[in-house]
Design a protein around this nucleic acid. Sequence first.
DNA 1: TTAATTTACGAAACCGTTTTCGGAAACAAC
DNA 2: GTTGTTTCCGAAAACGGTTTCGTAAATTAA
Lengths: 336, 336
Amino acid sequence: MGNTTIKVLAKQLNLSVATISKALRDSHEISAETKQKVLGLAKHLNYVPNPYASSLRKRRSKTIAVVLPEVADSFFSLAINGIEAVAQEKGYHVLIYLTHESFAKEEAILRDFQGGRVDGILISVSGETGEGSHIKDVIAAGVPVVFFDRICEDVETAKITTDDFESGYNATRHLAEQGCKKIAYLSVSPALSISSKRLEGYKKALAEIGIRPEKKDIVSCTNDAGDNYRTIKKLLQSKNRPDGLIASVEKLTTTVYMVCSDLRLEIPGMIKIISFTNLPTAAVLNPSLTTITQPAFEMGREAAGVLFKTLDRKNFNLKKASIVIPSSLVVRKSTA
Amino acid sequence: MGNTTIKVLAKQLNLSVATISKALRDSHEISAETKQKVLGLAKHLNYVPNPYASSLRKRRSKTIAVVLPEVADSFFSLAINGIEAVAQEKGYHVLIYLTHESFAKEEAILRDFQGGRVDGILISVSGETGEGSHIKDVIAAGVPVVFFDRICEDVETAKITTDDFESGYNATRHLAEQGCKKIAYLSVSPALSISSKRLEGYKKALAEIGIRPEKKDIVSCTNDAGDNYRTIKKLLQSKNRPDGLIASVEKLTTTVYMVCSDLRLEIPGMIKIISFTNLPTAAVLNPSLTTITQPAFEMGREAAGVLFKTLDRKNFNLKKASIVIPSSLVVRKSTA
DNA sequence: TTAATTTACGAAACCGTTTTCGGAAACAAC
DNA sequence: GTTGTTTCCGAAAACGGTTTCGTAAATTAA
């Protein structure tokens, strides 16, 4: 299948490869007449340029990397849609990498990018990621990085986030206003900035209403649904159990509902629930779930947008391009 | 910043680039001693090979493409996880492309692959895709293709699917066994093989129990949630409304529940619902939802596995590598 | 008419790596 | 001591485009 290259086009038309290349790129150096001939033959022979040859020479790959912890929850699904939409529009290709919440994998993936595989990186860091020297390295190598959602505080670059502190605060205030006296908070990956910020918001709200948060009301969950089920069950079985619950990440939602169902804890009568989630089914849960809904698609789109701004003009200052897009509290029956 | 290349390693060690390259690839032609030196300096200078140079020369990109209609529903999210898992293990990179259900986009994307961008392709075709000449073209260009879930009948290559016919059949039988006399079927993208097969299963089951399907009980939905809401509402408002409903794709689930809620149609008392979905929240909907659950992760993993078999040894016969992985009927209260 | 400029194209270097081939040196066999 | 063999390495040709630079011919300016 000797794929048709510029060379065969050149031979067939008795032109040089340089001329073919220029004609294909619509260079002003080439006459309209030859362009016609070249384009015609290219189409006829179904010529498709080799992207690797081009990338090697131009030192630009026209591809970006998206590195995510996983794509299991709906937040990242929506974010990918947002990212891919603008990438496709810009003629970029998108490589996707999953860290599975592993810092070691994240490091390995990022390291590879120093070889010039991608022109830019969008990343939501793993739950194990503390400091960001691996990210600084790749930035130092000349590859722009934009964070979205899960950021690294110590890396100076654009960060597209939602208002985590306010969301945690609003969720807590809402529960309090609905009459909750003892509000528990479920988190995962406490090292993450989103976790700590949401938690800070929770604490602030509690402080304002004169409740001091008890240690055992702040529960750290894992990525294992079984573990989480037991953890949450234990929390809700305690004699002084909470009457309000904040699930700070989507994956805890189902588990919480199941525990309540199994323990015959009626929502919202005996316990009120609010969850950070983008699940489209929140409205049809039993009962319908009050949520903090993140602008996932928009965050993806904005992150990609900011990245492409630097790619388009190298003087764009990424460090000053951070954006905070507010989440929204959608009140439903689980906190009635 | 001048990224360290093989050339600078060569200069620093007074060796040729050939030697460096071989040493890095652990060639037997190079003494253990020099390998040590090369590896040492490479690590010290943080050498990362340029993938484009390598791909150009080797004519292999070590990357595969995943082309999907969208990543909005949980099936494709899970499938991506399965695919990425095996790709990462094999040292491959994965490019992701969304067609947004557009045939034109799918064609454009596939065409680009003729340039050698990827070593293989995993695809779930768009809802507009009828015949697969664009896919045959890329196969003819030497790029192996594996379908998963949404296939093209007329393209002879590996297809990883689930038992759509049986699933449609089983869903229908189940509703009938639960007492439904008038079972409606909601579909999207009727051109798709999965749609027609599920529908055939539905028809077969109805035929077996002596019901002839009425035309208006087979409803074609779109990708617009608003439209679907109105369509489904109209169906369920008709005087001779169905007492059983099969939602043949995930995205219809939420809409169906909302319509029932708005029309005060009690599930399962007045209407029983079954949906094709992988949503983790199915168990905690109101009421819990009976589902046909597809083995999404496994399908992704198997599809990638089959693809890598051809990539590993070129003589592997893709045409005989199709796999059907059964879906499972999970009975819950929406059909009680 | 001559000089200056523009137009249209080709030769060749280059991007960074891989791979073939050849050869010097060291070692073994006879 | 003369032949094979290994062992270890380098020169150079790829891979398929892009880009710089040079130049002959055509055009314009003077």
